[in-house]
Every structure is written in structure tokens, then in C-alpha cells.
């Protein structure tokens, strides 16, 4: 869905790069800045007492288009935001006369940010007597990760191997019998695998031979199926609703979950319609029970149940093969 603006906007590319970063005046190793993934990792092992990070920024704008365009008093600002802390830091960037790039720095206060801040760039100008209009934004924002030790744009669901019985996480004790647990209330959904459940880790991590591999595949399918189901429910749990009652596509990990699963839950319905349908069934209760089998089907597809089950069935139907060796 593209937005139509009531004034001319930039067609050219706007890109932002972090050239250098420092923590309390000490330069950050460049290996913690990934221009390719557009991530800065601010976690320094052994240093948790820092107060401020400084990011040196460089922005490329379509300068010719700006020079020839109808906008006045053009400014370029970097905007650092984080939903969890409602924090927002804005820094103006400048372009020197002989330079083609806009440069500047933005300061990230440790007290204001907690986990993952997003760094975006906006180009602002005056048009038709109105100041401060956004005429362009960066193509892909950067992620400034305060917790990561490596500059990786994490897109996957977290899988944590944890000892439910004797591990440090007290709250897992009641679940000591459970082989795994799916947690969707955090920033990222997490699958917790119980290391005190004997044999589970060994099977998933080091299956050998067709039979063991087939078993591991089945278990993985089972876990993944649970995870997708839990994520789906969590994703449709509290949808924001527009004025006209249409639910919005949620952000973060919930969006890809819904995009992946809704076409299987409501085949033939566009995303917006499917979202509206699921929202009304959930809030009004009618047809919600009937939907569970569709959700289960969608989750089992994501978990590749048919493929892994077929592999397993074939493996058990040839038991001699393993014994002969």
C-alpha cells in the first residue's frame, strides 16, 4: 500500500550509513558495525556501565534532485527511536560545501534506550508555504542493538536451551517435566528447550542415521507446530483497530507470522480482509472454535509436518537397513 502525498516528494535514493561508533568516548570495534546488515551491536562484553554511545553518520541524498526541486530550506535529520522506551532522539546532519554526503552524529543515551533502537533518516523541506514537510525517508533503517554481541539483524525466533529443573530461571521450575515451552510475550518469540529433559538435546542436535534423523524431524515439527500456533494467537491477540474498525497489521515479528499463516487460515482472502475476519471472529466469538482446525493446519504447514512425517514413516518401514550395518 503506497501513500500519495499532497506535495512533491523525492524519487531518488536516500541511504544512511554508520561510519563509526563510540561508547563513552572509546571507539567501538568496526566488527560490531555491519553496513551490510545495517546493524550496530553495542554490547561490550565485560562493560555494562557505559552511559552514552555516539554514532557517526553519513547520508547520501539525491543532491541534484534536491537542488533542482521545488523545496526550500531543506534539512536532513537522523531519527533514533525505540518503542519500548518511547524514546526519540533527533540530530541534524550537515553537508559541507565540497562534500556530496551529509554528515553528523547522533547520541544514544543509555538511560533512554533498552534493547533495539531504530535509526532512520528523514529529509525535510518547505513547500507551498508549509515548513517541516517530510520529502523523503531512508530506504532501510538501521538497527542499533544494545544487547547484541554481534552485528546481526536478528530475524529468527529465539531458541534457547535451558535447564528447567536446576537452571537459573526460577519461573521454569514448574515446567520441569515439559520438554519445551513457547514464550511469545517478549520482544521476540522464544522457544525454550528443556536441557533437563534427557535425550532431547542430543536427538535434536546430533541425530545420526535415518531413523534417528526421522525422529528428530518429527520432534522438531512438533515443537515448531506449537510455536507457530502460539505465535499466531499472540499475533492476533491485541490488534490495533483503525477508525472504521479495520484492524492494522501489527509490527515486529507479528507481521511476518500473520503474512505467512493467514493465507492458509483464510485461503483466497487478501491480508486486510483476512485480518478483519479473524479479528471479528475473535472479539465476537462466533466461528472462533471452527477456526482452530484451520490455524492448526496453517501451523503444521509452517512446521513442515507432511514432509517430516512421510520421511519418518519411510524410515520405520525399512528397519532392517539400520540393523544390517
Amino acid at each position: 500500500m503506497s501513500t500519495v502525498y499532497p506535495y512533491p516528494t523525492l524519487a531518488g535514493r536516500v541511504d544512511i550509513t554508520v561510519r563509526q561508533a563510540g561508547i563513552d568516548g572509546k571507539a567501538l570495534p568496526f566488527s560490531l558495525i555491519s553496513p551490510r546488515e545495517q546493524v550496530v551491536a553495542l554490547h561490550l562484553a565485560g562493560r555494562d556501565d557505559w552511559e552514552e554511545a555516539t554514532l557517526e553518520l553519513e547520508v547520501g541524498l539525491p543532491n541534484d534532485e534536491l537542488a533542482d526541486g521545488p523545496w526550500a530550506s531543506v534539512a536532513c535529520v537522523a531519527v533514533l527511536t525505540e518503542g519500548a522506551t518511547n524514546s526519540r532522539t533527533v540530530a541534524r546532519l550537515e553537508r559541507r560545501r565540497d562534500d556530496t554526503r551529509w554528515r553528523g552524529e547522533i547520541r544514544l543515551r543509555r538511560s533512554m534506550y533498552v534493547a533495539r533502537a531504530v535509526l532512520q533518516v528523514s529529509v525535510v523541506g518547505s513547500y507551498d508555504g508549509i515548513d517541516g514537510r517530510v520529502i523523503g525517508t531512508g530506504d532501510v533503517p538501521w538497527v542499533v542493538d544494545l544487547l547484541a554481541r554481534t552485528a546481526v539483524r536478528q530475524r529468527d525466533i529465539e531458541i534457547v536451551e535451558e535447564d528447567f529443573r536446576d537452571g537459573p530461571q526460577e519461573w521454569l521450575r514448574p515446567f520441569k517435566e515439559a520438554p519445551w515451552l513457547v514464550e511469545t510475550s517478549g520482544e521476540l518469540p522464544t522457544v525454550l528447550l528443556n536441557t533437563s529433559f534427557e535425550g532431547l538435546g542430543a536427538l535434536l542436535n546430533g541425530a545420526r542415521g535415518p531413523l534417528e534423523k526421522a525422529a528428530a524431524g518429527l520432534v522438531a515439527t512438533q515443537i515448531a507446530g506449537d510455536a507457530w500456533t502460539a505465535m499466531f494467537h499472540s499475533a492476533v491477540g491485541d490488534l490495533e483497530v483503525d477508525d472504521d474498525g479495520a484492524p492494522q497489521v501489527p509490527d515486529g515479528w507479528k507481521e511476518p507470522v500473520l503474512r505467512a499463516m493467514l493465507p492458509d487460515v483464510f485461503p483466497g482472502l487478501p491480508l486486510a480482509d483476512a485480518l478483519a475476519e479473524i479479528h471479528s471472529r475473535r472479539t465476537e466469538g462466533h466461528g472462533w472454535a471452527e477456526l482452530q482446525s484451520r490455524i492448526q493446519f496453517a501451523a503444521s504447514r509452517r512446521a513442515q509436518a507432511p514432509k517430516n512425517l512421510t520421511t519418518a514413516l519411510r524410515a520405520v518401514s525399512r528397519p532392517q537397513e539400520g540393523a544390517a550395518r
Binding site: 554481541r149 530475524r155 529468527d156 529465539e158 522457544v191 528428530a216 515479528w253
Partner: peptide
């Protein structure tokens, strides 16, 4: 890379089924 990801890695066999960035079917 300084280190491999310390957490959130998990068994490969499971991780493959829990990717969020794959194009949906």
C-alpha cells in the same frame, strides 16, 4: 565474526522450521 551467536541459535533442524524471513508460501 567475534563469536558465534551465544543464544537463540538452537538446533539447526528446528531453526529451519522457525524462520520469519522466509517468503511465505
Amino acid at each position: 565474526r567475534r563469536s558465534t551467536r551465544p543464544t537463540g541459535d538452537g538446533p539447526e533442524i528446528l531453526r529451519g522450521l522457525l524462520r520469519l524471513d522466509l517468503p511465505s508460501a
